[in-house]
Every structure is written in structure tokens, then in C-alpha cells.
Design a protein around this nucleic acid. Sequence first.
DNA 1: ACCGACGGGACCTCCCGTTGTT
DNA 2: AACAACGGGAGGTCCCGTCGGT
Lengths: 221, 221, 221, 221
Amino acid sequence: MNHGSTASGLQPTKGQRTRAEIVRRCAQLMNRHGYMAASVSQVVQATGIQKGGLYRHFASRQALAYEALDYAVAQIRERLLRAMQGHANACDQLLAMLDAYDFSEEGIDAVPFVGGCPIMNSAIESDHADGGLLERARAAMQGWHELLVRVVDAGIRRGEIRPGVDPHRTASTFIACIEGGVMLAHLYADFSHLQAVRGHLANYIDDRLRPAGAAGRRRQS
Amino acid sequence: MNHGSTASGLQPTKGQRTRAEIVRRCAQLMNRHGYMAASVSQVVQATGIQKGGLYRHFASRQALAYEALDYAVAQIRERLLRAMQGHANACDQLLAMLDAYDFSEEGIDAVPFVGGCPIMNSAIESDHADGGLLERARAAMQGWHELLVRVVDAGIRRGEIRPGVDPHRTASTFIACIEGGVMLAHLYADFSHLQAVRGHLANYIDDRLRPAGAAGRRRQS
Amino acid sequence: MNHGSTASGLQPTKGQRTRAEIVRRCAQLMNRHGYMAASVSQVVQATGIQKGGLYRHFASRQALAYEALDYAVAQIRERLLRAMQGHANACDQLLAMLDAYDFSEEGIDAVPFVGGCPIMNSAIESDHADGGLLERARAAMQGWHELLVRVVDAGIRRGEIRPGVDPHRTASTFIACIEGGVMLAHLYADFSHLQAVRGHLANYIDDRLRPAGAAGRRRQS
Amino acid sequence: MNHGSTASGLQPTKGQRTRAEIVRRCAQLMNRHGYMAASVSQVVQATGIQKGGLYRHFASRQALAYEALDYAVAQIRERLLRAMQGHANACDQLLAMLDAYDFSEEGIDAVPFVGGCPIMNSAIESDHADGGLLERARAAMQGWHELLVRVVDAGIRRGEIRPGVDPHRTASTFIACIEGGVMLAHLYADFSHLQAVRGHLANYIDDRLRPAGAAGRRRQS
DNA sequence: ACCGACGGGACCTCCCGTTGTT
DNA sequence: AACAACGGGAGGTCCCGTCGGT
């Protein structure tokens, strides 16, 4: 049933293209309606493919949900990495992560992820229903956390962040602030909450992360 | 169908006690399994009461879910208020709110709310399914936000917080940090993430909220 | 889910009566269409009860099928026992068993078991699909086999059957002949095949079972 | 769609060989799982050929099932004929038929027909579902019955069987005993039941079929 | 000659809510 | 006030058969 990438990676067959499109559409759908809460009928409507066709590509609704989540997490991760690559300084990279969640210019209903952050959504939903979802949510969060730790570590090594800073606690703090801000922005459909958090994190960086003498030479939100 | 408080408020009848118990049990159940995702069968099992009996007290599963959410939010709010009342200084009150979410000494499976913060849970879930849930989640969040605004305002008036601080942005920041921290603690079943956030907020209070001269005279996490 | 005989055995509740009626109707249906092959829709049509109601009484279609088979086997067994009780001589009892399968006077579509012998039917079908069916078919057959062994044993003790006869082999022989005859009668909707087998078994009794001197003093088919 | 024997009978084309292999594999599969109960997926798995390929050779699953049954019946018939050809005496030929069903030396899971006698299986299953199956089961049984009648008739003509014997009733009796014995042997996975029936039939032949003076000149089981 | 891909429908299960009964 | 019993329907899975490629 795993028709993922069997026959080379050059010319995707029709089935592979269909399958990829299903995953893409489902990621959008399920990030709103819940990865486990979305019904097959909704998937049928969202993808334009019938049940009979769906079950050719995925063994179960659950398997499709997992794959959609994996896809969504990969998308978010890519967005984060791309946002970071625009900056050289570790502190700027940290702020860029938050900015990656700000869709205010693209509109709240824009791509890619209506429904908020998939990692947080699955983290919350995993408590409800499903063990497999929990595993995936934890793995996704862990990946993000480790990414942040690496950024902070590198910042310390490069002298962009004070030596005494604890990378793990800093990572947790950033994630908590970002996810909390995303939740508020999404709940109210109002990104000003995210901007408030951004200002807070910028201050935090100045107060506690940046080396004392180097304060304040960057764009302020 | 709203048998909430019909026969005076002194001696609750048997029906009223049953009804209250149902709501209490459902709040526990639904905060884990989702307010809309929890099925009537699960409610029957969790409460030990049969469907016929349930529908005597509640017009629909949805109505019960709303009431359970209201109850859960009220419980959390009460816990927050009680935590605040232990402190006179506005800054301490703010930190006490976060501490109210720390169940590390009571165990992760302890009361009252296995499954994390009901406000955040409903905020996330409201995106999935239900308009009524969204309204309630927003109202609950609004209530909390306003409470924080009042605390900050009062702190400014009493000279415990710097005059220039924006109460709304500060409230948003605290909520974001707390909810993000709760989410992490719950996802990993590990309250150390919440402690990291606590340290961060304590620093933030010292750096940006407390009047300059008054820095640092209270227990540090 | 096993609402079999909870509340005393005196006044069956409405549910118990419904349940019993479902089993009765299903035994008829499933003995024709196969215990596993019969669909829930067919059960709904045969019983006049809807799916929602069915699953209140039985955990699954399979559970209902098992119960229907058990009921059918019990009915056949009762019919066999009643037929035997009309005769004192062991040899006559053996022939009476075959006669119990002869519905030629009641019509081929008569009660109780359109569709042939439930034991044989389940024995054949058990090979197809289901392990639980095989267990039940074996147990039912074993019960019948042991009944025959007891009849032969008693016949030997009372001097109605020759001492040297092997009860087990005799039981197997009778069962094989009867079931084979029932199958033919049912396949062709023609009981003359069963009569042929009856004549054969009567001869067999005279030739090999009855004591030498006592030959031939009973009604011949 | 009937690509049975289009291009002469000398060099079977690749398609014809594939088709024959499908029928052969299906006969094995369907004799266990039921001719109508076996799903196309099971056929796909058993044959290693995909649906698109299957439906090139057969118009429907039903048509394939019929052909598989015909093949199975032909196989059994051939086995019976071959067993008979080893004996000249009619009485020995009758016993040889039963022996043809005894796979105890080849193992219960041996070829050719795991799942018991196809004629009996289809006779039982035909009651369930399908009119076409019933026709075929009756025809197959009729063919066997007539074969037995011819054997008995020839035996009478050659003086190996008493003149007064009724060939039809004798044929029915043999079939009933054999099929009943096969059923027992298969149900218990124990061929001793078939041996019991064999002994019984040998006695029956001595007592009622063989001419009086010619008793006992054959191997006893 | 065969396979991959898909549509539409039937199946079993479970759900929610109502009703009659105790 | 509570339960047992039931109807109607939605949900997820799998089925059979067709069609376009190759």
C-alpha cells in the first residue's frame, strides 16, 4: 500500500501524483478539522476522489491522516528553515521563526496552513484519540526543539548569544511563546497577538541573549 | 431542559445533584477526548448513567458539551483567582497564574484537568467542528485576558509595574507563554518545560515590568 | 451484551422475547444462506428489526450467527431425542434418528430447518471462513456422536445389539449415512434418497447389529 | 470472453496457459473458501494476477467460480474413474471410489482438494446464494450417480452383483455414505471416520450385493 | 496480455436521540 | 428520575467491475 517512491524519483506516475495531491489536500483539510476528526466523506469532498479510489492509495483513514500530518509537519519545517536562511545572526534566526507563522500579509485563510500550527494541533488532538498521533506529535516537536537548540548553540559559539544561556530552556521558551501566540492569533483571527509576542521575544533577546555591548542593532518590529 | 437552579438554592434535589455530577465527570472526560469528539457512549460509561437519564437533563450531546466546557472554564478561572489571592504584588500575581497550571506535585494525572487547559483545548478544537465551541472558547479566553489586563492596570496604578507598559500586549504575552508551556508540559508529560517558561517570565518581569529600582526582591524559580 | 437470562427465568422481559425471536428467525435464515454468508440486511428483513436495534442485543453479526447456530443445533438435538423416546429398542432408536430428518410429510419448505442439517451445514461452511464456526460445528457433531455411542452401548448391554459391535465406528457410520442422505434429499428436493438410505440402514441393522436369532421383527420401511 | 480452446488444441498460447492456471488455482481456493464466498481479492492473491488481467479471461467473478467448480468436479471425476480402472469386479470398483477420497497417506492438506469434496461443498453452498451453483451441483451429482448406476448395472450383468439389487438406491446409498464420511473426515481432520465407513460398505457389499456363494474374496480394510 | 487506477455501491458497526416502562 | 429498547442514519472498509495505458 506504500506507493510512496517505488519507481525511481524522476517521472512520477499518475498514481503517485494523485496520491501526493490527496496528501496535500488532506493536510489542509485535517489541520482544520482535526487529523482524526476529519471524516472520509470530507476527504472525498476535499480531494474530489471517491472512496474506492482513496483506499487504493491508503490502507485506512488513519494511515492517510498520519501521512497528512507528516506532510504538514514537513511543510512547516521547510518554511521555518527557509525563514532562518534569510538571516546570519542566531538572534535574528530565532525571530524569523516566529515570523514564519505570521500570515497577516497573506490573509488568515491563506496557505499553507489554515488551522494553525500542525504540531500544536496534533499535540492537542493526540490527547483525545490516538496513540500514533501522540508519537508523531512528539517527534515533530522534538525535531523543532532540537533545531532551536542547534541555533542557540551555534549562536553561542559564534558569540552572538551570551555564553551562560541554557539552549534547552531557551528552546522551550521560544516554542511556548510562538505556539501560544499562534493559538491566540488563530483563535481571534487577529495577528496582533502574534505581534505582541514578537515584541516580547525581541525584548527578551536584547535583555538576556545578546551579548551586553552588542545591543539593539537590528530592525525592531 | 435547563434544570440548573429551579428549586431554590438551598437544598439541591436529587436530580440537581445528578446533573452536577454528570457535568463534573463530563468535564474530565471531554477535556481529554475533545468536547465534540467525546461520544455519548463514552459519557454513559464515564458517568454510569444511561442515555435515557442523560437526555432528561440535557437537550443534546452538544448542550452537555457546552455545559461541561463552561464548568471546566469556571474551575480553571477559580483556580487562577485563588492562586492570585495569595499575593499582593501584581507581578507575583502574574507568576502565580502560571503556577496554577503546574500540577507537578499533584501528578500529571491529577485533578482537576487531565488533558491540559480547557481554554486552549477548546480553542484548538473549535477550529474543527463547531461554531458554538468557538464562541465559548473566545469568551473564556477573553475573560482571562481581561483579568490579566486588570491585574496589570492595577499594578501600574499601585506603582508595582512601570507606567509605560501596555496592559493588553502584556496580557497576550503572558497567556501565550503560559498556554505554550502547558502544551509542552502536557505533550511530554514533563513539567520541566513549564519551569523553563516560569524562569523566562520571571526574568521578563524583572527586565520590563517592575520599576527600575525595585528589581529582584522575591523568590526566584 | 449477553442479555440471555439475567432476571430470573419466569417473566421474560420484552427485550428477552425480542432477542429470542431474533435468534429463532436467524436460525432459519442462516441455515439457508450460510451462518457467515447471511448479511445484516437480510437479518433486518427476516426479523423486522432495524440495525440499531439488533446491535443492542448482539455485539456483532458473528455473535448473532454463533447464537443462531447454537439454537439450531439445540433444536435438532431436541428433535432427535424426542424421536428416540418413541422407541425402546436401541435399533429402532437408531432408525428413528434418520426419520427425524425426514420432512417429506411436512413438505420440504417446512419447519424447522429449511436448508438441511445445521450441523453439516456449519461443518462445510466452517472450512470457508471462520474458526469459531469450526469449533461449534465440531462440538455439535461430537455431541451427536456421543449420543449415538450411548445408544449403541445401551443396546449392547440390553442384548438388543450384538456384543462385538464397535460403538464408535457404528456411530460414525450412522452419522455419515444420515448426513449424506440429508444432503442428497436437500440437493434434489427429493426425499426418496433419504428413503434409500433408510432401507440400507435397516438392512445393516438386521445384518450386523441385531442378535442373530432376533432378526426381522419390526416394521420395515 | 470464452477463450477456452480457440486456436486449435496443439500449442496452447500464453493466454490459454494463464487462463488454465487461474482456474486451477481458483479451484483450490474456492473449494476451501466457498465458490461464491471467495472474493476477487483472494483470487488476485492466490493467482498472482491482477484484476485487469483476470477480467480479460473471465466475464465476471461468477463465471470464474463456475469454471473453477467445473474444473474441480472434472478432477474428482477423473480421480474416481482412475481408481475404478484399477479393478475389474464391480464391487471392488465401488469400494475404490471411497478410497479415492482417502488422502490419509498424502496428508489432509494435500492436493488436489483441500476443503473436501467439491460436489458436496457446492451442494451445500448452492442453498445459500446462487441458482447457477445449484444447477451445476445437481449436474455434477447426477453425473456421479449415473456413473454408479452404470457400475452396478454392469456388475449385475456380469454376475458380480445379485440380480435383485436396485441400482439407483444402491448408488444413492454409496454416495450418501461416502459424502458423509468425507464430511466427518474433513471436519475432524481425521480419516478414521472414513475408514469406519469403508468397513461398513465392505460389509454391506458382502451382505447384500455379492452373490451368495462368492463371499469374501477381496482385501479387507 | 496484463497492470494500475478509479467509481460507485454494499457491508458492518456505532452513533445520536426518542419512546415506552418501571 | 432513570432505564431498556429501538429507529434511522453516518462512518469506515472493502467489494466488484471498468477503463486507460503499455
